[in-house]
Design a protein around this nucleic acid. Structure first.
Length: 571
RNA sequence: UGGGGUGUCGCCAAGCGGUAAGGCACGGGACUUUGACUCCCGCAUGCGUAGGUUCAAAUCCUGCCACCCCAGCCA
């Protein structure tokens, strides 16, 4: 049913094309607009993603990107990328390239439609003069304090600025001189003349232009007056022939002003603003301001720390573009303030990596296993499948000898109820190698197990029992003769509480002290020697890991755990 | 107290007057050379709440309640 509206159904991943969650209320509204014709007659659906280049993109932006580009795609329309750079005090070119890179990484492309709001400064100035001529804007001399006082309160209307009825010619002259740099910063503003009685503060004569002598990253010092978002945005959209301007819920109050600008100017299009809820995820924070505090406070390893919800962080953590697109697609789009479980994001990653990541064996917390009846100098080769989900990915060879590394967790001197791994007297299968029987262990002075002893059954090569006996446990291992040492970083939630934002206390007080655990002496199988990023793989029975793009070197591997495997045993 | 929004399972979310989809999480079972994957089964007599209209209401009407956003020369 959904496909009826989708001009391009082939672009929707097959695994959820029967899922209604990809269709949502915005589709309904657009369908209505198309059916009505009217101001959208003859126009292709046209959206835009308009970030302000003042920080790095995070997964909340990914939701918006998927909606903006996704809807354009589904309707056979277009989506522009536009830097909303109307406030030079916060912006920097540094972010522009990073933003473009992140969007491309997600798999979206804006073609030749990359724009800057600053491209339109001259036209915006002209439109402002039009508003003045229509008596819809005036130059105001109120200070910020005076403006705040005369704006009124929730229950009382605003009172008119003393400059509200300034004659058109005088307004035109003053506005021209504002632009010419005749006045100091903050001394004059251009304001819209709308409705001081409105219950909506945005309509109580909002500021349209302010004087700001700040070097702009693109226009340099050409301008000393800059347009405000509420005035600039509808013009930017209209000039680009955008039909549907999608944004988040907090702009609902701004829509009347958006429409006011559209309706009072002679623009080439009349875009419609539609608002949706922004993404929240538990155990993390999403505001740029807070993420910045984490970075600047040195609490994380930069904007791309693998624990960060930034696209850079998720990428370094091992998240794939399709896992993120899938996630944003499946959480749906609505107007309800919502917080999605982090577990769902993890689910989407596991789902992707389960079918695509090659399996390897690695031992994170090594304990030596000695097979006392295995010949001292014998080395055998075993063939292992790279991905049981995808036989076409082939096989590889791992070596096997008398001394192996196994996971400390896979041995228990005294097994808990239901434990079916290695313990004295018990049999276990070494993945693809042999069935072994534990005979005991050796401990150091502190009681830590240092070596586990076992005998192997030579008749079970490959792990098959000729007598058909059932072996419940299969454990992973790495040959100590060929193992490659590696550092492995395990990550947990950055915050210890579900909603670090809500509490009375500062969000930083909820940081999870155990969000990072570094294992300096792990062992991975020899096939991984010399690898370099990007590399996603599954460490058998442990989880999905990737090479750290910053710190790993072919001769000194560093892995990040992207997400653990589900574990129905965990004590 | 003004304006704008939203309330369907622990978390997302369909539903648009005809008798509560789906996913995640969770619990149980089957399978298993990953305690993974996969596969079965279970999981809202209930849709913020109180009334009303109707043969029939999550869907329509009215009142209440709760939560979110807004008084930047930020976006």
């Amino acid at each position: 049913m959904r496909d009826k509206e989708n001009k391009n159904p082939a672009d929707i991943p097959a695994e959820h094309d029967s899922n209604t969650s990809t269709r949502h209320f915005i589709h309904d509204l657009i369908d209505e607009d198309i059916a009505e014709g009217g101001r959208f007659a003859g126009m292709a659906v046209h959206t835009r993603f308009p970030p302000e280049p003042n920080g790095y993109l995070h997964i909340g932006h990914a939701k918006a990107i998927c909606i903006d580009f996704g809807i354009a795609e589904q309707y056979g329309g277009l989506c522009n990328l536009r830097m909303d750079d109307t406030n030079p005090s916060k912006e920097d070119v540094e972010y522009v390239e990073a933003i473009k890179e992140d969007i491309h990484w997600l798999g979206f492309d804006w073609g030749d439609r990359f724009y800057y709001a600053s491209d339109y400064f001259e036209q915006m100035y002209g439109f402002a003069c039009d508003l003045i001529r229509k008596g819809l804007a005036f130059v105001c001399e109120q200070t910020p304090e005076q403006m705040r006082e005369s704006r009124g309160t929730l229950t009382t209307p605003g009172i008119p600025s003393p400059w509200r009825d300034r004659p058109v010619e005088e307004n035109l002259d003053l506005f021209r001189r504002m632009r010419a740099g005749e006045f100091a910063d903050g001394t004059y503003t251009l304001r819209a003349r709308i409705d001081l009685n409105s219950g909506n503060f945005n309509m109580r004569d909002p500021v349209l232009y302010r004087i700001l002598r700040i070097h702009h990253h693109r226009t340099g010092d050409d301008w000393c007056i800059y347009p405000m978002y509420d005035y600039a945005h509808p013009i930017e959209d209209a000039l680009e022939l955008v039909t549907h301007s999608l944004c988040s819920l907090e702009f609902e109050d701004h829509r009347p002003l958006y429409d006011w600008v559209i309706n009072n100017l002679d623009l080439p299009a009349q875009p419609r603003q539609i608002e949706f809820a922004r993404l929240g995820i538990n155990y993390t924070v999403m505001s740029k301001r807070k993420l910045r505090r984490l970075v600047e406070g040195g609490l994380v390893d930069g904007w791309d720390d693998p624990r960060m919800p930034t696209l850079g962080g998720l990428r370094r953590r091992g998240y794939t573009p399709s896992s993120i697109r899938n996630f944003t697609d499946r959480i749906g789009v609505s107007k309800v303030n919502s917080t999605v479980d982090y577990a769902f994001l993890e689910h989407c990653l596991r789902e992707d990596l389960n079918s695509n990541a090659r399996r390897v064996m690695a031992v994170l917390r090594p304990v030596k296993l000695v097979l006392t009846n295995y010949p001292e100098n014998l080395v055998e080769d075993f063939t292992v499948e790279n991905n049981p989900e995808r036989p076409e990915d082939g096989t590889r060879t791992v070596t096997f000898s008398r001394e192996l590394w196994i996971e400390a967790d896979d041995f228990a001197e005294v097994p808990a109820k239901g434990y079916f791994r290695l313990f004295p007297g018990n049999e276990v299968r070494l993945k693809t190698a042999y069935i072994i029987r534990c005979t005991g262990c050796e401990k150091d002075a502190d009681g830590n197990v240092t070596t586990v002893y076992a005998t192997y059954d030579p008749d079970t090569r490959g792990g098959n029992a000729p007598d058909g006996r059932r072996i419940k446990g299969t454990i992973h291992w790495v040959d100590s003769k060929t193992a490659v040492a590696a550092q492995v970083r395990l990550y947990d939630n950055l915050f210890a509480v579900e909603d670090p934002d809500s509490a009375e206390r500062d969000f930083l007080e909820h940081l999870n002290p155990d969000s990072l655990e570094v294992l300096k002496q792990a062992y991975v199988e020899a096939s991984l020697a010399g690898s370099s990023a990007p590399l996603n793989c599954q460490f058998l029975r442990l989880g999905y890991f990737c090479l750290d793009s910053k710190d790993s070197r072919p001769d000194a591997l560093v892995f990040n755990r992207s997400v653990s495997l589900k574990d129905s045993w965990k004590k």
